[in-house]
Design a protein around this nucleic acid. Structure first.
Lengths: 120, 120
DNA sequence: TCAACCTCTCAAGATTTGTTGATATATAAC
DNA sequence: GTTATATATCAACAAATCTTGAGAGGTTGA
């Protein structure tokens, strides 16, 4: 990932409504959620405001959309999220694994079956 | 990490000068760098501009400072970086490890000795 | 075709953020 | 104690961003 793309990603995540949308979609997984359902989950944002932020996030590559009937379904783009993290931490631990270990540990959630984030 | 703190963190990373500073300090590790050295590495930012961004980053908890003689040394705060990532990806893979695996892989740099990020 | 539904686009105003240049504070060297 | 070095603070202006409200584009079902 190059700098400009990373900047766009972090800028997209730096706004309350957008951060909530992304977290919602991260939890929703590949199925995603319709724009209206997202708006409801956020406690009722106006459609123009919601659309503004969804467009912003999509342009940053953090989410993508597909049409299903009259709904538009949004879902998280996990590789972009991964790219942001990788960009930020690149060359972090050159020769000193213990330095960025807490960062790596933050991600060892239930992704790896049988591994416990707290006690693994 | 709570939402407001995460927002502050991402906002801090969403600006070109600040993102460069953080990456510089992530590479520098615990030793950190003096403000002046950071400014030079950035290609010469005015002291007020540099100070503005360093203060912003410190307030967001992404970096911290200590005085050494007449220098002020800044260094990255890795746990905060880890917290940002964890906040973003929390509950990401509930029952579906394969979904956020690429995100976890992005961090399996040389942190874990003997593990290769590309082929591990 | 008409009506209902879901979502997007646009323009205007309000707010937030970043830059600049001047000045202030703190430490060190002479 | 005077000068040089290193960094922080302040005020003013410039620029980017967010919200609102009105209206338009597609899609579905009668």
């Amino acid at each position: 990932m190059e700098e400009q793309r990373a900047l766009a990603g972090f800028a997209a995540l730096s706004q309350e409504t957008r951060l909530r949308i992304v977290r919602l979609l991260v939890k929703a997984g590949p199925d995603g959620m319709a724009a209206g359902a997202i708006g409801e989950a956020l406690g009722g944002a106006s459609t123009s405001r919601l659309s503004f932020h969804l467009t912003h996030l999509e342009h940053a590559g953090l989410i993508r959309s597909r049409r299903e009937g009259r709904f538009i379904i949004y879902s998280a783009v996990f590789p972009t999220l991964a790219g942001l993290i990788a960009f930020l931490m690149r060359d972090c631990c050159d020769g000193h694994p213990e330095i960025c270990a807490p960062v790596a540990a933050a991600l060892s959630c239930s992704c790896e079956p049988g591994k416990d984030a707290l006690h693994g």
